[in-house]
Design a protein around this nucleic acid. Sequence first.
DNA 1: TAAGCTACTTTGCAATGCAAGGTAGTATAT
DNA 2: ATATACTACCTTGCATTGCAAAGTAGCTTA
Lengths: 111, 111
Amino acid sequence: MSIRSQLLKGILEGCILSIIHMQPTYGYELSMKLQKFGLSDVSEGSIYPILIRLQKEKLIIGEMIKSEAGPKRKYYHLTEEGKAALQQFIANWEAIKQPVDKIIDKGGEET
Amino acid sequence: MSIRSQLLKGILEGCILSIIHMQPTYGYELSMKLQKFGLSDVSEGSIYPILIRLQKEKLIIGEMIKSEAGPKRKYYHLTEEGKAALQQFIANWEAIKQPVDKIIDKGGEET
DNA sequence: TAAGCTACTTTGCAATGCAAGGTAGTATAT
DNA sequence: ATATACTACCTTGCATTGCAAAGTAGCTTA
């Protein structure tokens, strides 16, 4: 397990909600979008379980749609609950980011 | 378990390294410093296990020192390995923060 | 003597990312 | 036709980590 994995805990879920909020997205596409954004080592083994969980929690809804080229795709979109959860995630993220930045700014100087 | 807990995973360890890097610190003091920085709900049950782990990994060294008032305190300071680990953490943190900010900036707009 | 603070420690649980492996449809090349 | 590669989905089991809860013990003050 990579060091980064631990940092991603709790973050991935919010990122996935956010990407789906931009536009309905299917799992495989998600992994490529995350890569483009710079979260390069996120595998499908991380993504699909999260999608299933989010759907159980009724934050997203998935629909199988035929693809013109290739296997069928399960497009997900946010529910109203999902939108609320996304806003909550963003608030939590900001509430963590600021203290952490302050802490590493003071303690992380090179010696 | 609070929602924030998940976001803290992997982050707390780096923050603790960073605070100890500013100045040798003991466990109880750490919990108060984290509070002041804004990580308010971090309990001792989170901190001491991390300190023990960091010492096992030889990133920090603890020394019991008599207190003028109250029980003895175990002051921790960073090893060279610990300083390297801190720099590594900061790099990982930056590498996560930027993509996440980009993602929630685009997907997190209110509707 | 009691109460309250300081300070450290341990146990066991819950949540989550991920490696690894699997299934199957489609497209392209040989 | 057959093989290869890509698309796309799903599942199992593990390792890590934060934390609630509970405990131990010294010091200070009333």
